[in-house]
Structure formats: C-alpha cells, structure tokens
Design a protein around this nucleic acid. Structure first.
Length: 403
RNA sequence: GUGGGAUUAGCUCAGUUGGUUAGAGCACUGGUUUGUGGUGCCGGGGGUCACGGGUUCGAGCCCCGCAUCCCACCCCA
C-alpha cells in the first residue's frame, strides 16, 4: 500500500468539516475587517526566504523542502506565508502605488521537521498581512482579529506580548546583549554560542535551564526602547485594555523569523500538547525594503489551522435538505425527477434501493436530512409525493405538477 | 537531527506463562410479518494481528529490522 509521506495528512470527513468551518469563519471575519483574498504560489525562489525569514533561522537553515528544478532554478516549497505575499505586493508595484493594502490568505506550508502532535511537514495556515499602516492601532487590529476568530470558534487562549524595538533602539540593545553574552563566557550552551553571532536576540528564548538562569540578569529591550517604540507599546497595551483583551508581557518572546520588529505577539493554548502556539505575528516594517521594495510599514499574523481544529467547538448540526426514496422500483424514475427539481435550490440525496417507508425514514435520519420524501404505490397512482418534515413531524402530500 | 513509547475490525480497545477457529463496544448493513425515523429486539458482513525477517513442534505474544504515529529535546503556527 502506498501511503502519504511522513507528516503529511489527508483532510476529509469530520476533519474536513472542521477545516471548512474554520476557513469559513476566519474568512468572513477577515472580510469584515476589510481584508481581501490573496493567493501566491506554493513554490518560490529559495532566495526569497533566505532574505526574508533569515538564514540564521531554523526554518531556512534546516527545514526547507529545497531543490533545483529542471530549469536549474534554486526553488523551495514555502515554509511560511508572509514572504510570498510581500513578494507579490512588490511585484505588483503596490509599494509604489502607495495607500493601504490588506490581504488574507490560507493554504499549505511545508517544513521538513520531525513530526509530532501539532507539528506536521505539510500544514495549513490562515494569515493576514497589512501594508501601508504605521499606526500601532493596526497592530491592535491584528490582535483583535485573532481574538475575534478564536472567540467565535469557542477557543480559549493566553496572549503573550512583547516589543522587539526598531532600527533606533534595537542595534544599541543588540550590542549590549552581545557584551552581556560575552561576559557569560563558556557557561552558556552550544546553541547559544552559535546564536550569539547569528541572531543574539534568540538566546533569550533558549530553553536550557542553565542558560535561563544566567539570562535572568540580561539587559531587557523593554527597558531601553526608544521614545517611539515605547509610546507605541504603551498605546497598544492601552487599546487592548480598553477592549478587554487580556495579555501578558513576555520579554523573552522572540519570533522565530528574522523580519519582525516592534510588536510581537503569540496566542498559546494549554490544551493541545507541547506545540502550544496557535497563532503568532507582529510588525515587520523593514521587510519590504529588504526585498527591494519601497519602504512600507507592515504588520500581520498567521494561525496554525491544524492546531486549532481539535479545539474548535462545532455548532450543533442542524437537519437540512431532502432525502428521496422509492418504495418500489416503478417509483424510482419519478423520485429521480423530483430530486432533480429540488436540487436546484436544496440539498437533495437519492436512495436508489426500493425500501419500505420505515427504512427510508431511517435512511433520512441517518444522513441528517430535514425532509424525507417518498413515492410509493399510493402516490404514483395519484401523481403525488409524500414529504415528512422530520423536525416538525408534519406530513404533506403534494401533487407532482406543483413542484 | 537525538532519546523513549505505541501499532490487533472503519473507530476505541481486550487478548492470561507462546497452545485449537483472535474477541467486545461503537459504527456499517439487513430483518423485526408488508406505509411512519431517531433510543427496543434478533441477525449479518468485515482482521495477511502495520510491514519484512528470525527463534520455535507451534508466534498477536519472544528477538532483529523497517514504516508510521505519539512523547521529550529542538523548533514553531
């Protein structure tokens, strides 16, 4: 038997119902917030991710599905969604056009990792990207939108918040931090030694207990933000307070992708195992110019769909549509015609096997139909169809000429 | 990439120190005496015990390999 590749799943039946329900919910909310759909290719030039996500990140460093195509191009399956949307934004010259552009998207992402619960090699994200708004109100909008989606789906969460600073305060902080790490000498773990030169901010995120103990006294960016960053961060907290969105400042929250600055946030759940981040995002004002576009402020988030699916509280299924059945072979042709007519405006499912009424009712019940429509000898003789409303338990007989 | 656990029916799982024809519940399907469903009663189908080797008179059970899932590390959505 040929089976799907490791860490790559099929989505069908119940899973798909949840998947579809999520997409429908998230999409309608994104539209209400004024976002438009965008779809970008699954395959992109590898350089796009090296320059945006960053070569120091694990994603680019060791998790990409990268290969050379038949034309000799260095390409890879997208490991995340933002880079592609930014490339499209620049390629369509929307950066030069100016103004505000808000997009949402959903689709498959690929990372070559060791699979476990909530961590797949092919997984799906729903994300939004907003270009051209430098106001921190847009950052707050992102968080409110995620909170809105999660609330609508009945999902509980904790929100973690941090500010990563900008080009005015981050470089100075970075230097301070490197000096601090240098002072730690050989006491820090191997990973941190490596991070020190590639992306020193990431050491704060180290899970090593010994390192964490040392970093307790590390300089904190939150204490040396520049005026603008500090004001924005204060405003953001105020907006969230005003909207009753609870959060916790986590000074060690560092997004795994290099392009973030200023606002960084993560929504986590305690009910889905160790892969607990269900949504994450933040501001990335410098990314557009890194990718050769005209400098444009931007902010976005992404939700991990598979991680959310098991947390979704599905609404009560309601009966809908028609079940059609014939009681004897002679009535089947009539039933098929009726079903065809009803199908133009309703869900209509036909049972081809002639059965007695009791079994047809069972069948209608099984597929959760609202109406059970049957033609038997009596109806055939009078050119009628018998329809029972399974909720109201009311029966009607109507002439076939009137449907 | 490193370490550990698991894998028996569509699903959730039993299966004794290795011993006849591998079980249950749910699901599916049919009947319940001939036109009234969900929840009654009776029946039925369905398993290369993940896969490949080995030990043994005999393997679902023991040993080796391999695949997948799960857990931790790591990483992130």
């Amino acid at each position: 038997m040929i089976q799907s590749l490791r860490g790559m799943n099929d989505i069908l039946s119940n899973d798909y119902e949840r998947f579809d329900y999520f997409i429908e919910t998230a999409t309608s909310i994104a539209k209400r917030y004024g976002f438009h759909y965008v779809e970008t290719p699954l395959l992109e030039e590898t350089a796009l991710f090296k320059r945006s996500v960053g070569e120091s990140s694990d994603i680019v460093g060791k998790e990409m599905y990268q290969f050379t195509d038949k034309g000799g191009n260095d390409v890879c399956l997208r490991p995340e969604g933002t880079a592609g949307v930014v490339r499209a934004f620049i390629q369509q010259k929307l950066d030069k056009k100016g103004g505000i552009h808000r997009f949402y998207y959903h689709g498959a992402m690929f990372r070559y990792e060791r699979p476990q619960k909530g961590r797949l090699r092919e997984f799906h994200q729903f994300g939004v990207e907003s270009f051209g708004v430098d106001s921190v109100y847009e950052d707050a909008l992102m968080i409110m939108m995620v909170a809105d989606i999660l609330k609508t789906l009945g999902i509980g969460y904790r929100l973690q918040l941090n500010s990563l600073g900008d080009q005015h305060c981050m470089p100075k902080y970075r230097e301070d931090l490197i000096s601090f790490i240098d002072a730690c000498g050989d006491n820090i773990c191997e990973d941190c030694q490596r991070r020190k030169s590639t992306n020193p901010i990431r050491v704060l995120d180290c899970k090593n207990e010994k390192c964490q103990h040392l970093y307790a006294t590390a300089p904190k960016l939150i204490n040396q933000l520049c005026g603008e960053c500090e004001n924005d961060f204060a405003t953001l907290k105020q907006i969230l307070d005003d909207h009753c969105i609870a959060y916790k400042i986590d000074t060690h929250l560092v997004r795994g992708l290099d392009y973030y600055s200023k606002t960084a946030f993560e929504f986590v759940s305690d009910n889905i195992g160790s892969q607990s981040a269900i949504a994450g995002g933040g501001r990335y004002d410098r990314l557009i110019e890194f990718l050769d576009g005209k400098p444009t402020p931007a902010v976005g988030f992404a939700i991990g769909i598979e991680r959310l699916l098991e947390l979704i509280v599905m609404p009560q299924p309601t009966r809908n549509g028609y079940y059609f059945g014939a009681m004897e072979t002679e009535s089947l042709a009539l039933i098929l015609k009726c079903a065809e007519k009803y199908r133009q405006t309703n869900k209509a499912v036909v049972e081809y096997e002639p059965k007695n009424l009791k079994n047809h009712l069972k069948g209608a019940d099984r597929i959760n139909a609202r109406y059970c429509a049957v033609i038997g000898e009596n109806e055939r003789n009078t050119n009628c169809i018998w329809i029972k409303d399974l909720v109201e338990q009311k029966e009607t007989i109507i002439s076939l000429d009137t449907i």
